[in-house]
Each structure stands twice: as structure tokens, then as C-alpha cells.
Simulated scan of single mutants.
Amino acid sequence: MPMNDMEQNHCPEVEGKNVDYFQRAQWLRAAVLGANDGLVTVTSLMMGVGSVKEDIKPMLLAGFAGLFAGACSMAIGEFVSVNTQRDIEMAHIMRREKAMKNGGENYKEEADQTEREQLPNPVQAAFASALAFSVGAVLPLLAAAFIREHKLRLSVVITVATSALIAFGVVGARVGGTPMLKSATRVLVGGWVAMAITFGLTRLIGSKGLQM
């Protein structure tokens, strides 16, 4: 009996925590993914251009182009994805409603109405993704905007990107209830790899005589 009482006392708390993390999953995924994509994409573009051009203008232009294109792409992609998810869930609700009515089961319209209200909102998801991408993308742009010396500019951009990647990993782990070190390391290494590949390949193409 004491064990049962203890289990009853602890289960609601555990279930509450699980529900909290599950409810956070949708917006957390979009926010972390969007911010991380914005940071890595724009930083990689700027590093790639910076590998063959010392002038600050092409570097900033590439960064702004990446910000605008990426934010639009994230918004459209999230809008289409969430609409598809919404259509699938709505079709499931309608099939279940029809089956219950045809089978003579007790149909609860209130329950289905609640489920409809809880369906994901495509417009909100698109806006959140675009905003998160823009927040991540603007960091390397701000870092490079006022530094004229080429090597120092690249170093500052890398430093800011590294710090932001670690921060995104820690925040994502903190809110999502996952191990911080593992999350931060995964985000950091992934970002470094993307930046290194972009920098190396762009520099290689530039060194082969491609006029820019």
C-alpha cells in the first residue's frame, strides 16, 4: 500500500512534466531549427564569399541575400508542412466521426470541436519559422558589419557563430529537458562542418580561376 500511495503521488507530477515537454515540442523544434538554420546558412555564405573576397560589401550582400531567401523558404516550407499535417489530422477526425455515427456509437461533438481547435496553425508556424531564421541570420551580419579588416572580420564571425550555436544548443536542451552537453555539442559540430565545407569548396572554386 505505501508503494501504491507513493506511485500515485509521483505519477501526476511525472505525467505533468511529460505533457509540458510534449506541448513544447512543436514550437521548440521550429524555433531552434529556424534560428540554427539562419545562423549556419548565413554564416556559411559569408565565410564562403569571404574566402575569395576581402571586400566587406560582397560578404554582407551574400549574408542579406541568405537572410531574405532563407526566411522566405522556411516560412513557405513550414506553411506547406503544417497544412499537410492539419489536413491529415482533419481527415482522421472526419473519418472517425463518420464511423461513429454509422456504427451507432455515442458521438461527442464537443470532443471533435476541441480537437479541431487544437490543430496546428499554418500561418503561426510559418511566421515563427521565418522570425526564428531571421534572428539567427542577423547575428553574423551584425558581427561583420563594422569590421573592415578581412581576417579579423572572419575571426569575429566565426567566434559569434560558435557562441550562438552553443547557446542555441543549451537553450534547446534546457527547455526540452534533454542533456545540455550532448545537445550543444551536436549543434556546434554540425554548424562547424557546414561552415567548413562551404568555406573550403568556395575557396577551391575561386582558386581554380572562377571570376567573381
Results as ranks from 00 to 15, higher is better:
8 Q>P: 00
149 E>M: 03
118 Q>H: 12
137 A>Q: 08
29 R>M: 15
175 V>K: 06
208 K>H: 10
170 V>Y: 04
49 V>Y: 08
160 V>L: 05
101 K>R: 11
108 K>H: 04
76 I>P: 10
145 A>W: 10
42 V>R: 02
91 A>D: 06
150 H>P: 07
68 F>W: 11
81 S>A: 09
73 S>A: 15
41 T>Q: 08
6 M>D: 03
164 A>D: 00
36 N>R: 05
140 P>W: 06
165 L>Y: 11
103 G>H: 08
145 A>Y: 13
36 N>Y: 14
77 G>H: 06
73 S>R: 14
195 M>K: 15
11 C>Y: 15
45 L>D: 02
47 M>D: 05
177 G>N: 02
72 C>Q: 08
48 G>Q: 14
114 T>H: 02
123 V>Y: 13
96 R>P: 00
84 T>G: 07
69 A>F: 05
30 A>G: 00
97 E>P: 00
92 H>G: 13
71 A>C: 03
10 H>E: 12
73 S>C: 12
45 L>I: 14
61 L>P: 00
127 F>Q: 07
7 E>K: 05
98 K>T: 03
131 L>C: 05
72 C>Y: 14
38 G>W: 07
199 F>N: 02
185 T>A: 12
19 V>I: 15
36 N>S: 10
134 S>C: 04
84 T>R: 10
63 G>T: 10
156 V>E: 09
34 G>Y: 01
141 L>E: 09
58 P>Q: 08
153 R>N: 14
202 T>L: 13
154 L>C: 05
190 G>H: 14
19 V>T: 09
148 R>E: 15
52 V>P: 05
141 L>K: 02
15 E>A: 09
8 Q>V: 02
32 V>N: 01
202 T>Y: 04
11 C>K: 14
31 A>V: 13
181 L>N: 07
168 F>Y: 12
62 A>V: 11
134 S>N: 04
81 S>L: 03
165 L>Q: 12
188 L>P: 00
157 V>T: 11
128 A>C: 06
137 A>Y: 01
165 L>S: 09
148 R>M: 15
